[in-house]
Amino acid sequence: MANILETLDINHSFDKDRVMRFPNIQLEKGESKLILGSSGIGKSTLLHVLGGLLKPTSGRVNFMGKSLYELSTKQLDQLRGKQIGIIFQKPHFMQSLTAIENLKLSNTISGGKSTTSQVYELAEQLNIQSRLQAFPHELSQGELQRLSICRAFLKKPAMILADEPTSALDDGNTAQVVNQLQSLQQTYDTALLIVTHDARLKNHQFHTIELGAE
């Protein structure tokens, strides 16, 4: 099966003294992987590189057959908007909009064609349909994270990148969020890459790559 994502010799340095070297990663359609690493090792940096948010100092990132950093800003924005869903450690939403409005705005910006009923359907799968009229500041951390997952899957992307999606959650919520992620990943046949330091996720049958193990 063709790889959705393929990286080759990615290095990145923010200053001369410290160079972060990342393992080569391949991710097929519908496949899920866990990248595990301790704090400060560059997990978020790697996720930003893979998501087209940060150009690495060297190396190559191929996504859906295209070299990400050879695309123009406009092409990269469009590709990311349509094909890459990113779930951040700390979910951010427009505070002036309700949850449903945030989802609709994201859908509009990414050029997605999800209908309102599809939004509700997805929200129902994540068990937040009853909270869609609430404003972000009225939602709990767990609800915000589920809303963030909803936003990422709404555009039916080819790949989901999740940065520490469970770091702020208790065990119960962690299990729930990971199960929902896996379930949706299978439903949408999406590639899923989780970057975390949370060892609890090892129990969820992911193919795991440990950063700093080389």
């Binding site: 406009k74 908007g81 349509k82 951010h92 994201s106």
Partner: peptide, 18 residues
Amino acid sequence: ARKYQLAILRVEGASPNY
């Protein structure tokens, strides 16, 4: 106050012009 929210819009595919 909204810079994170705006950055997320960029992640979602919004262009700088947007």
